[in-house]
Amino acid sequence: MKRSFDDDLGYGFMHENRMDRGGPPPIGDMMDMMGNYPNPSSQTRLQIVASPGLSNAYLARLANLVPGLEYCDLNEQTGMAYVRYTSPQCAAYARDKLDGFEYPIGSRLMVRYPEEGTEARGYGSKRYVCLQVEW
Rank of each mutant, 00 (worst) to 15 (best):
Y93Q: 10
R45F: 07
N64V: 06
C130A: 15
G10T: 08
E70N: 11
R95A: 09
R61F: 06
N36C: 03
S51L: 01
S41Q: 11
C90G: 10
S125Q: 11
G117I: 06
I27T: 12
M110K: 12
C72W: 00
N64F: 14
R61T: 04
V133K: 15
R127K: 13
R127C: 01
P88G: 01
V83A: 13
Y123K: 10
D6Q: 01
E102N: 00
L54S: 02
G122K: 13
P26D: 13
E116S: 14
K97F: 04
T78A: 00
R95F: 05
A120Q: 07
C90R: 06
D32H: 06
A120T: 10
P25R: 15
L62W: 10
Y11K: 00
S41V: 04
W135N: 05
P24W: 02
Y37P: 14
V66G: 01
L74N: 04
M110R: 14
D73M: 10
Y123W: 15
G23L: 03
T44E: 04
Y85M: 05
M80H: 10
I105T: 12
M31Y: 04
E76Q: 15
Y113H: 08
G22P: 03
P104L: 09
L98R: 09
A92N: 08
Q43N: 09
P24G: 08
G23H: 03
T78I: 05
G79N: 08
I27F: 08
E70A: 06
R95M: 12
Y37T: 13
P26T: 12
Y85T: 07
Y103T: 06
N39T: 12
M80A: 01
D99S: 13
Y93N: 09
G124P: 00
S4A: 12
D29Q: 14
N56P: 05
M19Q: 13
M34S: 05
S87T: 15
N36Q: 01
M30P: 09
S107N: 15
W135A: 03
D6K: 02
T44G: 07
P114Y: 06
V111H: 04
R21Q: 01
Y82V: 08
E16H: 04
L131I: 03
G122W: 13
V83K: 07
R127M: 08
